[in-house]
Amino acid sequence: MKLHVDWTACDGRGVCTELLEEVLVEDDWGFPVARDGQRSPTVPPPLEAAARQAVDRCPMLALKLRSR
């Protein structure tokens, strides 16, 4: 699965970077950065549940999981 960030919605509240710290880190301003450097970072299968929770908990609904 890939994690898509809608940057027009993201407010850098930092929930996803806590729930998915294996995939995301925070930049200088609190916005998520993909550790793998991809535009839509890859979510390995063991982290899919955490990714789903991040999508669900994002206060701005800025995250989407997609299969490719």
Partner: peptide, 18 residues
């Protein structure tokens, strides 16, 4: 507290939200 984006009340952000 969850709107702040800071870990509040000694809890991580997502825990405050949950």
């Amino acid at each position: 507290g969850s709107r702040s984006g800071k870990p509040a009340f000694g809890l991580p952000r997502f825990a405050v939200s949950l």
